[in-house]
Computed example of a mutant assay.
Amino acid sequence: MAAAPTTPEARPEPKLGLRERKKIQTRQAIRRAAYRLFKEQGYDATPVDQIAAAADISPSTVFRYFPTKEDIVLTDEYDALMEAALRARPPGEAPLESIRQSILTPLRQVFEGEWEEMIERTRLLQEVPALRARSNESMAESGRVLAGVLCERTGRPAGDIEVEVLVGAVFGAFEAALMHWARNGHQEDLITLMEQALDVLGRGLTL
């Protein structure tokens, strides 16, 4: 039997500290309360003080974690997870593969516990113009985080245009897959759609 081809192993991903885990738990509690209220009475009809009461915290605590109501929907834990995953990828790995795995690996973990929240999030993005307007800003910030790490890994200067184009293309593919999933009633497997979208980039944008 032929030996299986070897691939570089990723380093173990660093674990988040207790303080960061508690912050994540608080943000998740706020988000769950908000999504429940948004679904029951609509996004525009739900003030932040109701969200705070439903999460059993003060409005000031909500604003400490989410400066605006839009941020409750658009801000998540993915950036920290993706950054940690990217830093843990094997040295010398192709940049596109590193970015691909740094996005897909954390999302597989997140979807296991937050599937319904992801469905609600994409529904809101489709229905609320204010959220759609802010979502591009949020996606751009996520891209800047990963582009900075990728510049470090490849020895390129911060703000390198080729790195920014690569990361921007990956996030564009990611967003296209997410919106396709939402438009089609969340019936398809989201991870498979994302893999297909990133495959297009891997082929050099050929069909």
Rank of each mutant, 00 (worst) to 15 (best):
Thr75Pro: 00
Val149Ser: 08
Asp49Pro: 01
Phe66Leu: 09
Trp181Lys: 03
Gly202Ser: 14
Ser102Asn: 08
Leu18Tyr: 01
Arg183Thr: 11
Gly185His: 04
Gln101Phe: 00
Ser142Lys: 09
Thr6Leu: 15
Glu162Ile: 05
Gln25Thr: 07
Pro129Ile: 02
Thr46Ala: 01
Glu141His: 11
Gly172Tyr: 04
Glu116Ser: 13
Ile119Trp: 02
Pro47Phe: 02
Ile161Pro: 11
Val73Arg: 01
Gly113Asp: 08
Leu205Arg: 13
Pro95Glu: 09
Arg121Met: 04
Arg153Trp: 03
Asn184Gly: 11
Leu166Ser: 06
Pro129Val: 03
Gly17Lys: 04
Leu146Asn: 07
Glu127Arg: 12
His186Glu: 06
Thr105Phe: 04
Leu86His: 01
Asn136Ser: 08
Pro106Asn: 09
Glu93Ile: 12
Leu178Tyr: 10
Phe38Glu: 03
Leu107Met: 13
Ala3Phe: 04
Gly113Thr: 08
Ala169Pro: 08
Leu201Cys: 02
Lys69Ser: 06
Arg27Pro: 05
Val128His: 04
Glu164Ile: 04
Arg183Pro: 00
Ala3Val: 12
Asp44Ile: 09
Ser135Thr: 01
Asp49Met: 02
Val48Glu: 10
Leu131Thr: 00
Ile24Thr: 13
Glu114Trp: 13
Phe63Met: 10
Gly185Arg: 03
Leu125His: 00
Ile99Gly: 06
Glu20Gly: 03
Lys39Val: 04
Val73Met: 07
Val110Leu: 10
Leu18Asn: 00
Pro90Ser: 05
Arg21Val: 02
Ala173Ser: 14
Asp76Gly: 15
Phe66Gly: 08
Ala34Cys: 05
Leu124Val: 01
Ala54Gln: 10
Gln101Val: 00
Glu13Ser: 05
Met82Val: 06
Met118Gln: 15
Gln109Gly: 14
Val145Arg: 11
His180Gln: 12
Glu188Gln: 15
Ile72Ala: 07
Gln25Asn: 12
Val165Phe: 13
Leu190Met: 08
Arg64Ser: 08
Val145Glu: 06
Ala133Asn: 02
Leu178Ser: 14
Phe111Tyr: 13
Tyr35Leu: 15
Lys15Gln: 13
Ala176Asn: 09
Thr206Lys: 15
Thr105Val: 10
Gly204His: 06
Ala33Gly: 07
Thr61Asn: 12
Glu116Leu: 13
Phe174Gly: 09
Arg31Trp: 01
Ala29Phe: 02
Glu120Ile: 01
Ile24Phe: 09
Tyr43Glu: 08
Leu96Met: 11
Tyr43Phe: 15
Leu104Asn: 07
Glu116Tyr: 04
Glu120Arg: 08
Arg32Phe: 08
Ala84Gln: 05
Pro5Asp: 04
Thr192Lys: 15
Gln196Tyr: 00
Phe66Val: 06
Arg144Pro: 00
Leu201Thr: 01
Ile191Gln: 11
Trp181Gly: 11
